[in-house]
Design a binder for these strands. Structure first.
Lengths: 155, 155
DNA sequence: CAGTATCCAGCTAGATACTG
DNA sequence: CAGTATCTAGCTGGATACTG
């Protein structure tokens, strides 16, 4: 019955492994935040608007530094994250809503108005991504220096 | 001269955007750690061996909880991270070496012996991934609950 | 032992066109 | 305005075979 046991064993190991990874919480989280657009949406909805200059900062309600998360409409997000396609934006927003990281509110005007806002959970995740950004700012130039050095040495 | 300015503008925006992302330190970091195998290698080299049971814990020098990072040989890592292919393991290790996150030491025995060890930078990154794991452990069941709820409600 | 080299399937992101 | 639907090109990861 047993065909080449070598290959079979390897395949089995891989299958078990994938099963493990599929339920590993860390892995699931990393899969979420490694998505290009997730972090950017988190930033768009979580960062206070004054932080990003070159945007016409609205004078109204600009002085609560970190109170409630802002709500943004689909088109606002789309404009802020200039490079995203409609497909990816919708897809990502829906995934984040599904995971309870943000809320989607439809107001039945004509045409419809849809607004998005981070939940506490989403806000908490945003805090985590900020700490990631912190590491990047502190150490990424070291990494880049090493990389450049390595590339030169190997010539 | 201007062909359909609509499409051209979009494309330009996207190009600029990609350029921005390419140099963004946070993005670069996320691209690194979102790699399936990077985190696992970090764990393999950074976690103390006693933490993972079902492994024959070597009695020697097992009582420094977080002193020097352990060194492991290629085949050890390969065995520990059962699901990884040679290609991916080598590729990932080389990338991490290039970035100064670990060192690769070749001992010219016959056959050759190659050992890997985290640098301080790598250790620091490992700390970050542990905080990510922390978030996952604290909040991922919330996320999963939301997801399940959402899927039921939408039926 | 510790790789290198090559080929290929699967998935995903983006382009494009259409709509309540 | 805020999407949905469809098609496809490109990249990545895995299988397989070979080597100093």
């Amino acid at each position: 019955m047993a065909t080449t046991t070598k290959a079979a064993a390897r395949e089995q190991a891989r299958t078990e492994y994938n099963a493990f990874l599929a339920v590993c919480p860390s892995r699931q989280l990393l899969d979420r935040i490694s998505d290009k657009w997730v972090v950017l949406i988190l930033c768009a909805l979580g960062d206070d608007p004054a932080a990003r200059s070159s945007e016409p900062t609205p004078p109204t309600e600009a002085d609560q530094p970190r109170a409630a998360p802002r709500t943004m409409r689909y088109s606002e997000i789309s404009r802020l994250i200039a490079g995203v396609s409609q497909k990816m934006l919708t897809q990502t927003l829906r995934a984040l809503e599904r995971d309870g990281l943000l809320t989607r509110t439809v107001t039945p005007t004509v045409p419809v108005t849809v607004s998005y806002q981070l939940t506490n959970l989403g806000l908490s995740l945003h805090t985590l991504t900020r700490s990631i950004r912190g590491w990047a700012q502190d150490h990424m130039d070291d990494v880049l220096a090493h990389r450049a050095q390595h590339d030169v040495t190997a010539s």
